[in-house]
């Protein structure tokens, strides 16, 4: 049986792991490769590195993180942040990344999704969607790290990127991100039923029950979480034991 996945997310700023609360107020939380190895040993199913600096002069630093991770970590990892062209994608993939997450660039240049999928395969292309609720049952797509609103409806957008060739959706609730109040289960359920590609839940994990709610009630295929694991409130092994006790299939 296909297992549900637990994916720690490492926000990387100039080569260091940090975690923001609602995208601001950053706290330094360590070396990315050391953290990646630690999480892998703990049972993480995948890793996501989000390059939150994402300036072009930072590119070399991030490529170095990717190369060093690929030498030490033998589970899949995704790189996001500042990827704007298929050349950027190719560079990251050749350095050892398995998948590329694109967010702002997908909105400004939707062809990037189809070109990336054509060139590297749909499995490489994760479209990250920052969603903010604007009315009951209605969410809008935001870009630029959540700073800029777009006219795009989240449901229409995820269906569009699926048709363009996205392999997965990384769905972040901006309303919940950093709050530890739980994932936006309603949003997850809507998106998961609107597309056939896997959906990764992000934003709001504070307890193990939240992980369960996203996977079971929200029909997410994977949960992305940062602070719940970074600050050792729970280990990944604890999370998996808990979810297994609730009959969620987990890799052992």
């Amino acid at each position: 049986m296909l297992a549900k996945r637990i994916i720690p997310c490492l926000d990387v700023d100039r080569g260091r792991v940090v975690k923001g609360t609602n995208f601001v107020d950053l706290v330094d939380a360590g070396d990315p490769i050391e953290q990646a190895k630690y999480y892998t040993a703990e049972g993480a199913d995948e890793l996501v590195f989000l390059d939150i600096t994402a300036s072009s002069d930072n590119r070399a630093t991030m490529l170095d993180v990717v190369r060093r991770t690929a030498e030490e970590v033998f589970i899949p990892f995704t790189i996001g942040g500042g990827i704007r062209t298929t050349a950027d994608m190719r560079e990251m993939l050749r350095s050892g990344a398995d998948k590329i997450a694109i967010n702002t660039a997908a909105v400004s240049t939707p062809e990037l999704v189809s070109e990336g999928a054509d060139r590297f395969g749909v499995q490489c292309i994760v479209v990250a969607v920052d969603a903010k609720q604007i009315a009951p049952g209605q969410w809008r797509v935001f870009v630029n790290g959540g700073r800029t609103s777009t006219p795009l409806d989240v449901i229409e957008w995820v269906q569009m990127v699926e048709s363009l060739g996205a392999g997965e959706i990384l769905l972040t609730s901006m309303d919940r991100d950093g709050t530890k109040d739980g994932y936006d289960v309603e949003l997850l359920r809507r998106v998961a039923s609107a597309v056939r590609i896997p959906v990764i839940a992000s934003g709001g994990a504070g307890t193990l029950e939240h992980l369960y709610a996203a996977l079971h009630d929200g029909h997410a295929d994977a949960v992305l979480a940062a602070s719940i694991f970074h600050f050792r409130r729970h280990t990944i092994a604890e999370a998996k034991d808990y979810l297994r006790s609730k009959h969620i299939i987990m890799r052992h």
Partner: peptide, 13 residues
């Protein structure tokens, strides 16, 4: 087939 999510992504046995 279209009865399952495609791609098949993740850890399976």
């Amino acid at each position: 087939p279209s009865t399952v999510k495609v791609p098949h992504i993740g850890w399976n046995q």
